[in-house]
Every structure is written in structure tokens, then in C-alpha cells.
């Protein structure tokens, strides 16, 4: 079964019966749903219970929780400024959710939530929707100035469509970046895992050679741990940057 490297991305129901129907679509509790529930519960419990206010010397767990909190707070502060901090709960949730999804996906035999374009695109749409709502609430119709850079009018004919297109492609780039990174890493691991199995099964000298892809898997695994963190960070920081534009338009200087 493990020989098809794409097989690991299959979303399959854990129970035959759908949990409920929404507009005629059956909703199943799938392997992905299970991981999502695990991620949400684990992150909630850890970030709540590891921290005890009034504990002046933090435990290791509390240190991690505080570190992630301050990491996200600093990220928002540097990318979106002081008034970006009102989006802290959202960006923090986004970062923790993506980070935990990526890391839990690294556990062999589990499922990588973020390797599904449906999930990453939904998250990206959520971000862009928040950006648009924030922009119009803060600036009214003036938010559309976001698409008008400071340039002579004859250049604007060219620049405005480009700005509009670049804005519209943001949910795509944001979601595909995360999706493709996770997909590629896990595919690569599965491919090299397949090599180990087939070489091991081949017998003779090939069994010994199976050590080569095995070592490679370890190296890729380490790289994937880095990618797991990095993609969560990129997703969160891009959210902050987009929110910053909605809050402050183009007013650099």
C-alpha cells in the first residue's frame, strides 16, 4: 500500500455513515477530521494548561507557550504595527493551527492536514476576507486606493490592473505555497520510503544498499521539520503583511 506516494494524501471516512448533511453534501468524519480534532485539542490543552499565571520561573512547557505567544506578538508588531495587535488572536490561531498541522503530519502514519488544497485555500480565503473587511471598515471606499500606486496617470493604466491581479492572486499564492511544500516533502519521503522497501525486498546486495535511501529519508525528515515551521511562519507573516496594507494602505514614510 505504501508504494503509491500519493496514497497518503487520500481523505477517507473513518465511519461509513456521514455525520450530517449540509445542502445535500454528506459530511464524513475522516482521517483528516481526526487529525484536525487532535491538533485543535492538543494545542488548546497545551497552551492553556502549560501556563500558570504567577509562576515566575516557567517550566519547559510554559516557556514554549510563552515563546510562541511572544513570537507571534513580535511578528505582528513588526509587520503590522501597534494597531495590528487587535488581530493577535486570529494570527496566533492561524500560526498555531498551521504549525501543529505541519508537525503532527510529520508523525509516521498520521495525516498532513495542510497537504490538502481545500484546507489551505480555505484558510487563505479567510485571511483575504479579513483583509478586505478590515480595509473597508477602516478606510471605506478609500481602501480602493490600495490599487492605485503613486505614479503618473499614463502608468496607472498599466499598474492598476497589475495591482488588482496581484491582489486577487494572493489567496492562490498563499494557499498553494503551503499546500505544495507539504505535499512535495511528504511525497519525497514516501518515494524514498518506497525505495527502502523495494531494495530491502530485492535481496542480496540490494538489501544492503537500502541504507542509502534510509539515510536520505533522515536528512529529508530534518529538512521537513524546518519546512514545517518555516511554512507556518510564512503563512502567518504574510497574513500580517496583508493586514498591514489593509490598515495603513500605501502610507510608507
Amino acid at each position: 500500500m505504501a508504494l503509491n506516494p500519493m496514497e497518503q494524501f487520500t481523505v477517507r471516512p473513518l465511519f461509513a455513515e456521514p455525520v450530517l448533511h449540509i445542502a445535500g453534501h454528506p459530511i464524513y468524519f475522516t482521517n483528516q477530521s481526526l487529525l484536525m480534532v487532535i491538533v485543535a485539542l492538543a494545542a488548546s490543552l497545551f497552551l492553556t494548561l502549560a501556563v500558570k499565571p504567577g509562576r515566575l520561573v516557567p517550566t519547559r512547557g510554559q516557556s514554549m507557550a510563552e515563546l510562541s505567544y511572544e513570537f507571534v506578538a513580535n511578528m505582528i508588531h513588526s509587520a503590522s504595527g501597534e494597531d495590528g495587535l487587535k488581530f493577535f488572536p486570529f494570527v496566533f490561531t492561524l500560526f498555531i493551527f498551521v504549525l501543529c498541522s505541519n508537525f503532527f503530519g510529520m508523525v509516521p502514519g498520521s495525516f498532513t492536514i495542510t497537504s490538502q488544497i481545500a484546507v489551505t485555500f480555505s484558510l487563505a480565503l479567510l485571511v483575504i476576507a479579513l483583509v478586505i473587511v478590515t480595509g473597508f471598515v477602516k478606510h471605506g471606499i478609500g481602501f480602493l486606493k490600495l490599487f492605485v500606486p503613486h505614479a503618473p496617470w499614463y502608468l496607472l493604466i498599466l499598474l492598476v490592473p497589475i495591482e488588482v491581479i496581484s491582489f486577487l492572486t494572493r489567496p492562490i499564492s498563499l494557499s498553494v505555497r503551503l499546500f505544495a511544500n507539504m505535499l512535495a516533502g511528504h511525497t519525497m519521503l514516501a518515494v524514498f520510503g518506497g525505495f527502502v522497501v523495494s531494495l530491502g525486498a530485492a535481496g542480496g546486495i540490494f538489501t544492503g544498499l537500502a541504507i542509502a535511501p534510509m539515510l536520505l529519508i533522515i536528512a529529508i525528515m530534518l529538512l521537513e521539520l524546518l519546512v514545517a515551521f518555516l511554512q507556518a511562519y510564512v503563512f502567518a507573516i504574510l497574513t500580517c503583511i496583508y493586514l498591514n496594507e489593509a490598515l495603513h494602505l500605501h502610507d510608507h514614510h
Binding site: 481523505v11 471516512p13 468524519f29 484536525m36 481545500a118
Partner: peptide, 11 residues
């Protein structure tokens, strides 16, 4: 539909 439903719930 299942993916998005559970994403909304857990998120």
C-alpha cells in the same frame, strides 16, 4: 465539504 466543515469547526 467534509474537509471544509471540519476545518471550520476545529479552527
Amino acid at each position: 465539504p467534509s474537509q471544509i466543515f471540519w476545518l471550520v469547526v476545529t479552527f
